[in-house]
Amino acid sequence: MCVEVETVLPEIDLSELDAIIEPYLGRKEMVIPVLQKVQDHFGYLPRPAMEQVSRRMRIPLSRLYGVATFYAQFKMKPRGRYIIRVCKGTACHIQGSPKISGRIEEILGVESGETTDDLRFTLEEVACIGACALAPVIMINDDPHGRLSPDGIEKILEKYS
């Protein structure tokens, strides 16, 4: 995966970042929990924040990005207010999850991994959310929606504005 440089740098308020890093100073093995906390705070990993983490924790920026881009959880770009996670587990797959994601892509006009221009939805895939009995399943933020069929998707998305 390559790291794209953000073309327009949004305003990033770094004032609370030091407090997030503080408890982990000197503990390089805790880099993943730190990045998780940073992402919780900003919604993604903005470059200026990464630079500050790198300086404070004394981890080269390249290594930090190496770790961040390895794990699917970490996002390098801002995401939508609602994260749609389409379960790509086996049970969901054979119960028709490709048709579900196809329908969502059609409605939103974005592909998996992308965010709508109005920052309303981000469409993602997830390996398995473990609700196989309700396949096919999607999660919108923390709400699971199970036993879906392609024609019911539009109604569900309408609930999230």
């Binding site: 093995e29 998780q36 794990y71 970490f74």
Partner: peptide, 22 residues
């Protein structure tokens, strides 16, 4: 907490992840 990488279910990869590496 894992960070979303299937390969971390492999034992030596999992150890690397606990150590804060890829």
């Amino acid at each position: 907490e894992g960070a979303g990488a299937f390969v971390c279910g492999e034992e030596t990869a999992l150890l690397g992840s606990i150590e804060g590496k890829r």
